[in-house]
Design a protein around this nucleic acid. Structure first.
Length: 446
RNA sequence: GACCCUAUCGUCCAGCGGUUAGGACACUGCCCUUUCACGGCGGUAACACGGGUUCGAAUCCCGUUAGGGUCGCCA
């Protein structure tokens, strides 16, 4: 094997199938993925399901679906295999048995009430961490650092042991994980040393906290990646937000594409402070991404929401212009159906408040009538032409453009808020616009 | 309780011995505008505290306080 291959970076994401994918876990996965991709290495997905009751197909699927949605692709894993599988801890018992035998042979373990414990060497352990620096742990006090159990009486193995064994077996070079594991690391290093193995490079990244400063938990809004999937966040926006927690590209840059993140991210520049998750800012960043992404990308992300809402948009040819005019306005993709629904449905609902405010205004009927008559003469139905027509009509009637714009907006959309009026006219087409004017007149005040 | 980590606007991130302490979210004033957004120009708002070191400290050191993490036959 060439020397360079021995040095190839290998990182992993090792979630436990709990039935939901935590944003903290996602950020850990992202940092591991970035480091592997930046160094031409491999990113491995390993499922830590030694706790039998958590091991369900559904819980596994949540992890796969979440990572796929985010675009964090893995090179080896339960679903695609690899040279160091199986990639589910529940299927690796024989491997753990071999490593346990090694510890037994070297006298590092002992039995205690049916369980097997690792005898700590009781020597100071130094953790050289890429993010945290050099930290020395005093392991001499058994009261505060008891010998860890590595196998239960029922024969199942404990996290610390399987985690280390797998990291050795899977030839991981870098372990990037949450800082909650920093205090566990000396124990892991003791295991590596007892096994005669070289520990990987460790990087402990700061934790993500909720708005009360506590560890983000299931109850907290936005703590599960499914929240972002359901609300229509762009995955690149979520990843962008997450990478900004504890890291910055400098120059006050915030909105970054994945390409930029891949180019700029630097493990060594991660700070050490825990960060509070700010859903408001993530929301803002999502809007920024929706605004700046290509229409093709927007369509790709929005279409599933449109389909799910059952909007009869007909063809892509009809859908695209509608999506194009709402793209600069929408902040959540799940709002797209509401923003475009009335463009594809002649029985759209009228917002009573909007009707009262614009259509019930004295003279509204006459103004809509006049605008309809004028628009009828517009031959080339473009944004520019309908705008010119409306403004000319306003001048003729001696009213401000707004006096026509507002009732017209309600007439064609049923609401007072929406995309640009002329864009809506253009998307609806001349005939449908004028038909809607006729209907609205019936509701309007004289 | 022991051990480990952390400490700049409400929040996130800059700063790394000399700055009017910067940017973003949120809040807010004005402008732009057909609505809502977007955008532009402003505003409110921070170096936890106390000692050192230094000509000079948000930046370095120590302590205090506060917060977080770990100390499982959870992962």
């Amino acid at each position: 094997m060439p020397f360079s291959l021995l040095m190839t970076v290998r990182t992993r994401f090792a979630p436990s199938p709990t039935g939901y994918l935590h944003v903290g876990g996602v950020r850990t996965a992202l940092f591991n993925w970035l480091y592997a991709r930046q160094n031409g290495g491999s990113f491995i997905l390993r499922i830590e399901d030694t706790d039998e009751k958590r091991n369900t197909p559904e819980a596994n699927q949540v992890i796969f679906d979440g990572l796929k949605w985010l675009g964090l692709d893995w090179d080896e894993g339960p679903d695609k295999g690899g040279d160091f599988g199986p990639y589910r801890q529940s299927e690796r018992s024989d491997i753990y048995g071999k490593y346990l035998a090694r510890l037994e042979a070297s006298g590092h373990v002992y039995e205690d009430a049916g369980a097997i414990r690792f005898r700590s060497p009781r020597r100071p352990v130094v953790v050289e961490d890429i993010v945290c620096g050099r930290i020395e742990f005093d392991m001499s006090n058994p009261a505060t650092h008891p010998d860890m159990t590595i196998r239960r009486p029922d024969g199942s193995y404990i996290f610390h042991f399987v985690n280390v064994v797998d990291d050795i077996e899977m030839k991981l070079t870098h372990v990037i994980r949450g800082e909650d594991h920093l205090s566990n690391t000396p124990k892991h290093i003791e295991l590596y040393e007892a096994l005669g193995e070289k520990p990987p490079h460790f990087s402990h990244i700061p934790l993500i906290l909720n708005n009360e400063g506590k560890k983000l938990s299931k109850r907290d809004g936005g703590s599960s990646i499914s929240y972002f999937m359901e609300h229509g966040y762009a995955p690149e926006a979520v990843l962008n937000y997450l990478c900004l927690l504890g890291w910055s590209p400098g120059e006050n840059r915030e909105r970054l594409t994945m390409e930029e993140i891949r180019a700029l991210f630097d493990l060594k520049k991660i700070n050490r402070r825990n960060a509070i998750f700010d859903l408001d800012k993530c929301f803002w960043l999502n809007g920024q991404h929706l605004l700046s992404m290509s229409l093709a990308r927007f369509v790709e992300l929005a279409k599933p929401f449109v389909e799910k809402a059952g909007i009869a948009y007909g063809s892509d040819e009809a859908l695209l212009p509608a999506l194009a005019i709402v793209k600069p306005k929408v902040k959540h993709l799940c709002d797209v159906p509401d923003w475009i629904g009335y463009l594809f449905n002649e029985d759209f609902a009228f917002d009573p408040a909007a009707v009262d405010k614009s259509l019930k205004k004295p003279g509204a009927s006459g103004r809509i009538e006049a605008l309809g008559v004028a628009l009828k003469e517009v031959e080339d139905w473009t944004h520019a032409n309908v705008e010119a027509c409306l403004k000319a009509t306003a001048t003729t009637l001696g009213v401000k453009a707004g006096e026509l714009v507002h009732p017209a907006r309600v007439a064609v959309s049923g609401r007072s808020v929406g995309p640009g009026l002329y864009e809506m006219f253009e998307v609806l087409g001349k005939d449908r616009t004028l038909e809607r004017f006729d209907k609205a007149k019936a509701m309007a005040a004289d």
